[in-house]
Design a protein around this nucleic acid. Structure first.
Length: 256
DNA sequence: ATGGTTGCTTAGCAA
């Protein structure tokens, strides 16, 4: 099973690139974040023509997530499912390819100390509780998406530029570690323990040409599934050329 | 401290 996760930064602006990515990698499952579109604005016809079903949790203007799959997704769930008011469409999950797949777009947090920062930390705590509440520990489960945290300084090309920011702050790292401590392994780390792989480069300040990247997009999996992962990579070339997303796709392959 | 860029929506917000 090949799984791809990608923050597209507007699915409408990125439609042609999305179709090219699907054609190039031929994933069995694709988790998309930052659709910036309502479900009815999602290019379902083009995606269907490419051979994929889509489970969409959309929203006007911001956020929005989707799971694409070769086989029809089963038991689609939208949101954190904790009954709290949740106007931001940041999570969708489904049973696909023999596993529970959760596609998440964790809040960025804007600035340490801001309201959005508090929301980010709370959202990660809610995600941990959702795992405990809604998902059986024994079932194969993948949590993939833009988790907006670089877990370690080796996931940051220029740690001195990002120290203490919302992507690297120890409280964000701890909150993500609490999610993983439910029973999830970092599949990309497993295959690249040395670090130095990045998935996001700011549009500003020539971050990509300067190599100022961070690894904030992740594929986490329960241990038996992570044990069966045989490769993981970042499609860094997708960040090049005309009108790229600011994120590159992450790809993980499992023996399933 | 500010700046720099992109996308949605059309001036300002979010990342």
């Amino acid at each position: 099973m090949k799984l791809l996760t990608w923050n597209v930064n507007s699915v409408r602006a990125r439609e042609a690139r999305l179709l090219a990515v699907l054609e190039r990698h031929k994933p069995d499952v694709a988790c998309l974040q930052e659709l910036k579109a309502l479900e009815e604005q999602f290019p379902a016809e083009a995606v269907k023509a490419a051979g994929y079903h889509a489970a969409v949790n959309g929203q006007k203007t911001w956020n929005g997530v989707a799971i694409l799959s070769r086989e029809p997704p089963e038991d689609v769930r939208r949101g954190l499912g904790d009954g709290a008011p949740d106007p931001q469409a940041r999570l969708v999950s489904a049973r696909v390819a023999g596993a529970r797949v959760i596609c998440a777009y964790v809040p960025n947090g804007e600035e340490v100390g801001s309201e959005k920062w508090a929301y980010k930390l709370e959202w990660l705590a809610r995600l941990r509780r959702a795992l405990e509440r809604d998902f059986a520990k024994g079932e194969p489960l993948v949590l993939a998406g833009d988790l907006n945290v670089a877990p370690d300084d080796k996931d940051v090309a220029k740690p001195e530029d990002w120290a203490g920011t919302v992507l690297c702050h120890e409280d964000a790292r701890k909150a993500l570690a609490r999610v993983a401590a439910w029973g999830l392994a970092d599949v990309v780390r497993k295959h690249h323990p040395e670090g130095g792989l990045y998935t996001w480069w700011d549009y500003r300040m020539l971050a990509f040409p300067k190599g100022n990247g961070l690894r904030i997009d992740h594929v986490l999996a329960t241990a038996p599934l992570a044990d069966r992962s045989r490769a993981a990579s970042v499609d860094r070339d997708e960040r090049k050329g005309e009108k790229p997303s600011d994120h590159a796709p992450v790809i993980a392959e499992f023996d399933l």
